[in-house]
Amino acid sequence: MFHLAFFIYFEMAAFIVSLLTYRALKGTAFRLFPFFLLFIVATELIGTYMTYILRLRNNSWLFNITTTLEYIFYAHIFSLTLRDPAFKTMARRFMAIYPMVVLLNLLFVQGFTEFHSYTVVLGSLFMIILCCLFFYELLLNPLEGELRKVPMFWISTGILFFHLGDLSFDLLFNLLKNDATGKEFFSSINNNLILILYSCFIIAFLCQRSLVKSLSH
């Protein structure tokens, strides 16, 4: 039996909450979240299995696929929730172009056996921009309810903090990849950021549920 990292339980919790609140998520921009979270949990479990049971030293290819799909999924959520047509188009274009850029990076620059840190930096920067655009739209429409009850506010906050926190590591990835202490240090930061990210998702799902409840009453 292998030991699961603490943050995986948070990802599982987010998946379970998304299932429990699925009726409220259905028909909204968040309807694909349970499938996405199932995919994330499965990836983490497979990754852990590969590392601890199969003793495979390199599982970068798995996380290259996961992170790429993750960015595409977040961009999809933003393309549905942003209001400005120009911002929507920007998110949609990212969804179309980003996988191609990742592929080109893996084919010609970093290779399939390496973690695609360059395109991860690009993806993270774009996620930060999309979050800022969402907050900008919130500034323009200050009347729409209390901020802490807006599901997308929590999702954006989680995504923003996660990518802001990860950005430094991604930028220093080439320096850190052979530094065990640095990697370990980053892991502790990253694990906490994952907790923040999935806690925000859980709050967002619960907000969505109470929003639907208050509308149906």
Binding site: L160, F161, L164, G165, L167, S168, L172
Partner: peptide
Amino acid sequence: EIIITLIAGTSTLLLLG
């Protein structure tokens, strides 16, 4: 030095957020 840079960078960005 790398770790210090990492801490400084991450803290600054998180603070910004």
